[in-house]
Write a protein that binds this DNA or RNA. Structure first.
Lengths: 331, 331
DNA sequence: TTGAAAGCGCTAACAC
DNA sequence: GTGTTAGCGCTTTCAA
């Protein structure tokens, strides 16, 4: 089908293109009769406005760039869901950018995003450092960061206070039993989150006057955390493990079971991000319910507010978490 | 930062915008000296070409629309990964569209896609019916379908012969033991795949001269397949279950274990789509390794070929699968 | 090798 | 109410 343009519609309806434009955009100053004529022509020709041309004329694209870490959609998925659901409401499209570790130059992504002249950017990614952020902010589109407390003139953020979540959990455990040893499992693909978790435990230890670090670093030679735990879990000086993602928690859980430890008696395990799989493994994994869907939805909502110059009461939006006790923890 | 345009660069470099355009696009007919001047100006001003304007001028957007089923990225993720990885190579952006069951009108999505004037579409979705396909094909962009054998003038497809995979598996089992009863678990969000699986078992039964249907329909009142299996697995007339997605296989597996059945002795379970979780549950799930990443990568590659009018030997590309035996099946 | 100018499809003043 | 016209930022003939 030959691409039909606004001119074709105008000719078909016997009006000027300006009138067609008015009809398309629902401006009220068009006479009923004319509008009907135009609409009939639109239907007849199957005309759909060219968003690119509109974008050029209006200097906006109704596209949003979303940057997520390497494409492990397992734990990114809910965020994307939330994002897309509200993006649809406000008629924005999502251009998806992933950062496969090391393979793609961050600079290239930033470049692509700028060239594509999106109206805004949502970033859920530890690895986008200040340098890149600075690059972005030279162009004046609004940015929303997920998972990281930050804000600025045209930067907002939506996050959960993970440090505090971990802190409260660890503190509770330590108060219950001073001999409990809480350890945080490193998440290689989420440095920032890992650091937050560590700060949480450390704060708890400190508050209890215990000299302990609480950081379980996964040596680089282990490609899968399961292998690491299989080799080491019996010797680990921790009996309460906190992991960020389900796969890591499950790895620890399986390794523990298979090395003769019972859960939660010998080792307790908690997962930060909730996923359906936490509920599918046995014993079921206790977990925080980091509201991933909401993180995405709220981020997108805030972005639309920035885009429409609506009032925003707070550019640093903290969402609350919930702890869901299942069978991998005591009491 | 004021958006810098090609005019700004031209003025800065003391040349015309046509020359700047030539430099940007790497056309050889620019004198070295001039090119250097222009490049210096580009650097100095931090100019990045406006992809929207380029799009208008060239009537192409370098954007690809990707349509995936409701946003359960768990099993869509690998496909998206593959897609994006090769999209990057060819400098295409991915606009992501999801179809949350029932909530979004398919028509609206088609509409959005057409308005956005993407260069091509990749669809991984059972629910996009012929009606919508027809709508798409009125506009002349190329389409690649994932998971479904189909082709046409500007439609190609990349898929795995699931019917055959299931057929071979079922046949082998039945030949081994005529009393074995193979059942396919309905996947509500993937009608097409479900039907293919059913045809596979039915063909095997038929070939063995056995009067059996092999379809395990999950009644609508069960929101989670786990609940259904918990209620029914002991009475199910099947001892060899085939599920499409990991979560369904795991549901059956958990329900079986918890109802006193042992795996694989009493019930065997196989999952079609492989995921890391298949390897994380106990017993580990035997599974086909449907090459999801490759499905995405190949789909995108084919699309680029169509976009660049390259020769395509086959518009129906069948990818092969592998069966990975783990602990949820015998022998 | 470079510049001038038309055109991609649309919006938004500004006239009428 | 409706039409005319000047952009939006870029590519691409066609001339020079």
């Amino acid at each position: 089908m030959k691409r039909v343009t606004i001119y074709d519609v105008a000719k078909e309806a016997g009006v000027s293109l300006a009138t067609v434009s008015r009809v398309i955009n629902g401006l009220e100053i068009v006479r009923e009769e004319t509008r009907l004529k135009v609409e009939a022509a639109i239907d007849k020709l199957g005309y759909k406005p060219n968003a690119i041309a509109q974008g050029l004329a209006l200097s906006k694209s109704t596209n949003i760039a979303l940057v997520v870490p390497e494409a492990s959609f397992g734990y990114t998925g809910q965020i994307i869901n939330g994002l897309i659901d509200v993006a649809k409401i406000y008629k924005y499209n999502i251009i998806l950018h992933t950062m496969s570790e090391g393979i793609v130059e961050i600079k290239d992504i930033v470049d692509e995003i700028i060239k594509s002249r999106v109206d805004g950017v949502i970033i859920y990614n530890d690895k986008l450092l200040e340098k890149e952020m600075a690059e972005f902010s030279k162009y004046d589109f609004p940015i929303v960061i997920i998972g990281n407390r930050i804000s600025d003139d045209n930067i907002a953020s939506v996050f959960v206070d993970i440090e505090n979540a971990v802190y409260e959990l660890a503190l509770g455990k330590l108060q219950e039993n001073e001999n409990c040893r809480v350890g945080v499992i490193q998440d290689r693909v989420n440095d920032f989150t890992t650091r937050e978790m560590i700060r949480g435990v450390q704060k708890a230890y400190k508050e209890m006057g215990i000299e302990e670090d609480g950081y379980i670093e996964i040596p680089a030679e282990y490609r899968r955390s399961y292998d690491y735990f299989n080799d080491s879990i019996k010797d680990l000086p921790y009996n309460f493990l906190i992991a960020n993602r389900d796969s890591q928690a499950i790895a620890a859980l399986n390794a523990a079971k298979e090395n003769g430890l019972s859960i939660p008696e010998d080792v307790e395990i908690v997962c930060l991000i909730d996923s359906k799989y936490n509920n599918m493994v046995r014993p079921r994994l206790s977990s925080f319910a980091i509201p991933s869907y909401d993180l995405g939805a709220v981020a997108m909502r805030v972005l639309t507010k920035m885009l429409h110059d609506e009032e925003i009461d707070d550019r640093e939006i903290e969402l609350s978490y919930l702890f869901t006790k299942r069978s991998s923890t005591k009491s």
